[in-house]
Lab assay of single mutants.
Amino acid sequence: EWCEALHSFTAETSDDLSFKRGDRIQILERLDSDWCRGRLQDREGIFPAVFVRPCP
């Protein structure tokens, strides 16, 4: 499952995944309604679900 970043997100901890608006992120797991775990290029981490939308 893939999503597109609606806003940029800067990691606040070593577990977070930083990304820029427009990045396509592979969703690996939905942790709960607020957080997802994903992969961007060679990095993995968690990020807020409200920062992304599903890719068509």
Rank of each mutant, 00 (worst) to 15 (best):
A49H: 06
L17S: 01
F47L: 05
D34E: 14
L31D: 15
Q26R: 09
F9V: 08
W2M: 08
P56S: 09
P48M: 05
S18K: 02
L17M: 08
L6S: 08
C3W: 03
R24V: 12
S33R: 09
T10I: 09
K20S: 13
C36P: 00
D15Y: 11
F51Y: 15
T10C: 11
E12Y: 09
S14F: 09
K20C: 09
G45S: 00
R39L: 10
W35N: 05
F47V: 05
D42P: 01
A49S: 13
H7N: 13
V50R: 15
C36F: 13
L6R: 06
S18P: 08
E12S: 14
D42G: 15
G38A: 07
A11C: 05
W35C: 09
C36E: 00
L6D: 15
S14K: 14
Q41L: 12
C3Y: 12
L28D: 01
P48V: 05
L17W: 01
C36K: 06
S33F: 10
L6E: 05
I25Y: 02
L40R: 07
R53S: 08
D32Q: 09
I25M: 03
S8Y: 04
E29F: 05
R43H: 06
H7M: 13
L40M: 05
L31E: 03
C55A: 14
E4V: 11
R39Y: 04
F51D: 03
I27A: 01
R37T: 02
P56V: 04
R53V: 09
A5D: 04
C55F: 13
T13A: 12
R53N: 07
D23K: 03
D16G: 15
L40I: 15
P56M: 14
R53P: 03
S33P: 11
C55M: 14
K20P: 01
S14N: 14
S14Q: 14
C3D: 03
I46M: 07
A5L: 01
V50P: 05
W35Y: 15
D34Y: 11
F19R: 01
D16R: 15
E12P: 09
E4D: 06
K20M: 09
D34T: 15
Q41K: 09
F47N: 09
Q41N: 15
P54N: 12
R53Y: 04
A11K: 04
S14I: 10
F9E: 03
L28V: 13
G38P: 00
S14G: 11
E44M: 09
W2Q: 04
D32M: 04
L6N: 07
C3H: 12
E29V: 09
F19N: 01
R39G: 01
S8M: 04
D16K: 15
D34S: 08
T13F: 08
C36A: 10
G22W: 01
R43G: 05
D15V: 13
L28K: 01
P56R: 15
F51H: 12
A11L: 01
R24S: 06
R30N: 13
P54D: 13
H7A: 15
G22C: 02
E12H: 13
T13R: 14
C36Q: 02
R43F: 04
F47G: 01
F9A: 05
V50L: 09
P54H: 09
W2E: 13
R39M: 10
T10M: 12
Q41W: 07
G38I: 00
I27M: 07
D34K: 10
P48N: 09
E1G: 07
D42Q: 12
S33Y: 12
P56Q: 15
L40W: 03
S18D: 10
T10E: 13
I46P: 03
F9T: 04
I27L: 13
I46R: 15
L40G: 04
S33N: 14
G22N: 00
F51T: 07
R43W: 04
D32E: 10
S18H: 06
L31M: 12
I25Q: 00
F51R: 09
R37F: 07
D23E: 08
R53G: 10
V52H: 01
W35K: 11
S33K: 13
E44H: 06
G22V: 00
W2G: 03
P48I: 00
C36L: 14
F51N: 15
I25L: 06
E44S: 06
A49K: 05
F47R: 00
I25A: 00
D16V: 13
R24P: 05
C36I: 15
Q26E: 14
R39P: 00
A49V: 11
D16C: 13
S8Q: 08
R39N: 02
C3L: 05
V52M: 07
